[in-house]
Design a binder for these strands. Structure first.
Lengths: 336, 336
DNA sequence: TTTATTTACGAAAACGTTTGAGTTGATTGC
DNA sequence: GCAATCAACTCAAACGTTTTCGTAAATAAA
């Protein structure tokens, strides 16, 4: 515990005023280059570090952003955070992480607690358990916010998504072209636009190929993993689809297990495509055809947009960005 | 932009002093229960949020911890963060994330910047590229720090690791019992204790079974993924081991690809075990035998230790905790 | 009754910065 | 040569809390 060194220390040492030191450290035009240099040198020598609390309190700038996501132990989100952290780092910003575990109450608690000036802005991928748009409608008026991947369409804020509709449409079409006639859909994120878009893409593609949409071919995601497993198993036993599109990774993997248990051979008996950012997709048995979102790039872009907003304080028309996912064809959809 | 509401607002509204409000909000024994209740009610009604900067500045408590890791988009670390975030949440703490990308300079920059009172404590898993122990020896005297998984042995600080030596020893022994005679080792983290321990476990197990340790059977990890691939390929072509132990996930996966390319059949021609937290290990082709670290639990425990230190300010003898990894046998080591 | 003690509160000084409004001496325009 | 401008710096008031010390009234001890 050595005595902490402050701008006061520097001022005393150099025989100049506190304000001169402060302005020198902030590279103000009011200070001569010689004085600045002296201050900088001494600061480095004494390993001076600006006290962030004092600075924030006075200036209302925190150099900190918050990232709110459903789950960190998830390939998509951890890659997105990677991208966010990267650009935050370049700007000297700090990154706070909050997990909602798909709980809107938690989500509300987090955002509320961030309104007291702890952060300059928020990056968020919303929870899927309840519709929370009223809360966010109010939030975005209070603090610069960028939504990524999981967004509300009708909120007046910046957002970045992927082409969910097209991806699902194309994936479904691809399966049809492979000769599949009975394509099941593993449905998740149904409260969110992303989920609805994916479902629409699937439905419209069916229609475009003269195939009927049947609700019995749909499994709805549940928080209970065992239940998901059972539901998929029931689907396989009762309907025996010849293909499956999964709207999230967490439903595709149990599907693999079910097939293993029931002796259903992929891709001969059943073809599988999943929205997924698994880096081991090529190594699965069989390798999994995926619709892969540009997670890292989304993180980067989302952060970039937030900083753009923070730079010019006046709220401009909000940016709406859509990135393309890529369909990577692998063995789980191999045609003969 | 409504006018921000502070304790001053509350004080004026209730006709009591600022200090009374502050004390009431902090549940001080100096304030009567009636007054407290009035303050709390009004605070809730007006959605008062304590300004963290002002609070930190005065009290020197930030309710924030920092997590410094090599990479967030990594199964082990993202699970560990999950655990950390969980217990931080319970305590009402905020979590800052920093990625070093295995760069010690970055690591030094981060920790230095945290010394200005931005956080109450640090959780860190150190970078592997250079030996940085001198820096950390100084750091731990300045701020409560807990090392997890990647630690320096000789630094006087709390730490939590897994039983790397025993895990590697047991895994090697298991391979020998399966009849393997030529067991290669994919070596990583060689600057770190974890890496050395794993290597020692491998070597000692060989010795215990009258097998010679041969350096030609070792591949050293490189940052360049292509080079790793090539080195593993060379190993397979030149030495043709009948088993491989990989000290990290990132070397096991290229190994799978090499085998695919060279037509080496796992597990008949080559058995593979890897330290790994891949959740798709059971679905790989073939499913991968892993030494799996309790990542989530490590995160939880590491955070728990840090909070224990923060609670009782006096630095007690530091806790050294070791958790057990589990060897999960799957098809990549199937014996006949 | 008088003197301690306790209870509940208030005044004011921090905490370390930033910032707008001076101040000073030197330079410029005319 | 005098006012006006400018460059470089200082003063002091904030920012919103926490906390120490002080004090008045109420209660207990004597």
């Amino acid at each position: 515990m050595k005595e902490t060194i402050t701008i006061k220390t520097l001022a005393k040492e150099l025989n100049i005023s506190i304000s001169t030191v402060s302005k020198a450290l902030n590279d103000s035009y009011e200070i001569s280059i010689e004085t600045k240099q002296k201050v900088w040198d001494l600061a480095k020598m004494l390993k001076y570090n600006r006290n962030p609390s004092a600075s924030n309190l006075r200036s209302h700038k925190t150099k900190t952003i918050a990232v709110i996501i459903p789950e960190i132990a998830n390939n998509f989100f951890s890659q997105a955070i990677n991208g966010i952290e990267e650009v935050a780092r370049q700007r000297g910003y700090h990154v706070l992480i909050y997990q909602t575990h798909e709980n809107t109450d938690q989500e509300i608690a987090f955002t509320d607690s961030l309104l007291s000036g702890r952060v300059d802005g928020i990056l968020i991928s919303v929870s899927s358990d309840h519709d929370n748009r009223d809360h966010f409608t109010a939030l975005v008026k209070e603090i610069p916010t960028v939504f990524f991947d999981r967004v509300y369409e009708d909120i007046d804020a910046a957002r970045i998504t992927t082409d969910d509709y097209e991806s699902a449409y194309n994936a479904t079409s691809y399966l049809v072209e492979c000769g599949c006639k009975k394509i099941a859909y593993l449905f998740a994120l149904n409260n969110l636009n992303a989920g609805k878009q994916r479902m629409s893409g699937y439905q419209d593609a069916l229609k475009a190929h003269q195939l009927a949409y049947r609700e019995e071919l749909t499994v709805n995601y549940d928080k209970d993993a065992d239940l998901n497993y059972q539901n998929i198993k029931d689907l396989m036993l009762n309907e025996r689809p010849d293909a499956v599109i999964s709207s999230i990774e967490d439903l595709a993997l149990p599907c693999y297990y079910v097939c293993k248990e029931l002796g259903i051979h992929i891709p001969d008996d059943l073809k599988i495509i999943s929205f997924s950012n698994l880096n081991t997709a090529p190594l699965l048995n069989p390798s999994l055809t995926t619709i892969t979102q540009p997670a890292l790039e989304m993180g980067r872009q989302a952060a970039a947009i937030l900083f753009k907003i923070l730079d010019k304080k006046h709220f401009e028309p909000n940016e709406w960005l859509t990135l393309k996912s890529t369909l990577i064809k692998r063995d789980s959809t191999a045609c003969h």
